[in-house]
Simulated assay, not measured.
Amino acid sequence: MKSEHIPKATIGRLAVYIQVLENLLRDGVEVISSEKLARACSVNSSQIRKDLAYFGEFGVRGVGYYVQELISSIKESLGIDRAWNCALIGVGNLGTALLKHQDFARRGFHVKAAFDCDPDKIGKEITGMEIVCPTHLKERAPELGLEIGIITTPPDRAQRAANHLVEANIRGIINFAPARIQVPPHIPVEYVDFFDHLYSLAFQVSLGDNN
């Protein structure tokens, strides 16, 4: 069961749970108690139970959680038990790094097309993928089954990239560019701004300096 009323913080913690559980599975752990899982995820056990309760009943009383089963259940709940085809716009340093990041495909997110408006980049290949002008995104999207857009352009080009994605009927966008974009309300947008985290960290460190 999915609900739009599930807090974003819960979704974020579920992603952490998956990461921790996958590491446990690689270490040969098949069953884990809620207390041990909570410590590994840096939360309390009641928080884990509350987060999982949004999607159903998990775990066995007196036993704990079966790791593989819990991974599969969380992935199904989040909608990541299937492959998602992605388009990336902006093949600069960050875009290139993301294209080379092998964890994308391993986690079910397959970057099927790379776009850039720089004439010096168009036609070149990166990780075996030809860089194409974004004006061709609309025609490429249906044939490649593109559903998610990844924006890694400079800030002044982010809106134009978003417009191309909207015209191509992309269903959701993750924006790494340090700029806000305008899209129709039915298209969810997630922003990834490293400076948000740096500002937050600097504030926390400065609090320690003042104590």
Rank of each mutant, 00 (worst) to 15 (best):
E4K: 10
K8R: 15
R13G: 07
V16P: 03
Y17N: 10
Y17D: 11
V20R: 13
V20Y: 07
E22W: 06
L24V: 10
L25I: 13
D27F: 12
D27Q: 15
S33V: 00
L37C: 04
A38I: 07
N44D: 15
N44H: 08
S45Q: 14
S46T: 11
S46L: 09
K50L: 02
D51S: 10
Y54C: 06
Y54I: 03
E57A: 14
G59E: 08
V60I: 15
V63Q: 15
V63E: 13
G64P: 13
G64F: 08
Y66S: 14
E69C: 09
E69F: 11
L70Y: 14
I71C: 11
S72I: 08
S72Y: 12
D81T: 06
R82E: 07
A83C: 06
W84C: 07
N85K: 15
C86W: 05
C86E: 04
G95N: 04
A97R: 05
K100V: 01
R107I: 02
R107A: 13
F109I: 07
H110C: 12
K112F: 05
A113D: 00
F115A: 04
C117Q: 13
C117G: 05
D118M: 06
K121Q: 03
G123V: 07
I126L: 14
G128L: 04
E130C: 02
V132D: 03
V132P: 07
V132T: 15
C133G: 14
T135Y: 09
L137N: 02
K138F: 09
A141L: 01
A141H: 01
L144P: 07
L144F: 13
E147V: 06
I148E: 03
T153F: 04
P154A: 04
A158S: 15
A161F: 01
A161V: 02
A162E: 00
N163W: 02
V166T: 01
E167K: 08
E167H: 03
E167Y: 00
G172K: 15
G172V: 00
P178K: 01
A179S: 10
R180T: 06
P184I: 00
P185Y: 06
P185D: 11
I187P: 01
V192G: 02
D193K: 04
Y199L: 11
Y199D: 13
L207V: 10
